[in-house]
Design a protein around this nucleic acid. Structure first.
Lengths: 99, 99
DNA sequence: TAGACAAATGCAAATATATAAATATATTAT
DNA sequence: ATAATATATTTATATATTTGCATTTGTCTA
């Protein structure tokens, strides 16, 4: 199956995933979740120096659009990449901006 | 240099590129521009069956954000990928939605 | 069960985006 | 110069997104 054969629904799903990623803070979040790393909301909120609720909101968007998964452990909720190869997207677009 | 070392400006540039791509019609446009292919506005407008002005608008966004380049030849303007590896982004996200 | 900590949600204001219709500009041919 | 074709821009309306504050929900521990 080839990209050109995607239905409008599949194009929309792909667009929604990319739209979820297409935000400076959310790209930063993904960059911290490479190699199967799992981080809590608080850890990300402190790493990025943004509000807890804003962090939670961003994570919710990424989860809702199928980019991240979450797993509750006690008081904490760990977030991690749903598909390892999603790091490629961030790597690829980063490369375009870095060089 | 690693992704995590991106400045806020670079994160924003990367986000702007992804935001430009993150639209069903614009993903479809990129899928037609694989392998260095060059297409005119009219060709894309007919392939995608969307308004000419809408097509031009989408192409303008992709060009403005550094995803596409354009080259005028007579009456026609040909659009093509700025970086070949940008196809990877579309391929990657497509794979996630296809299966 | 009360208190502390972690995360998620509802809300509102500011900002950004999408679409199409109408119009404008650029290029070629007659 | 004028007409025809290809693109681009302007404009307006509708819709979506971002952010932080305040609040709520969930979980553990004393």
């Amino acid at each position: 199956m080839h990209i050109k054969d995607l239905t409008i629904e599949q194009l929309e799903e792909a667009a929604n995933m990319l739209k979820a990623i297409a935000h400076p803070m959310r790209i930063a979040i993904l960059s911290y979740l490479e190699d199967g790393k799992k981080l809590t909301v608080t850890e990300i909120h402190e790493l990025l120096k943004i509000e807890q609720s804003t962090t939670s909101h961003h994570l919710g968007i990424l989860k809702d659009k199928g980019v991240l998964c979450s797993k509750r452990e006690g008081k904490n909720t760990y977030y991690f990449l749903k598909h390892a190869n999603l790091s490629n997207i961030v790597n690829c677009v980063s490369k375009c901006t870095m060089g």
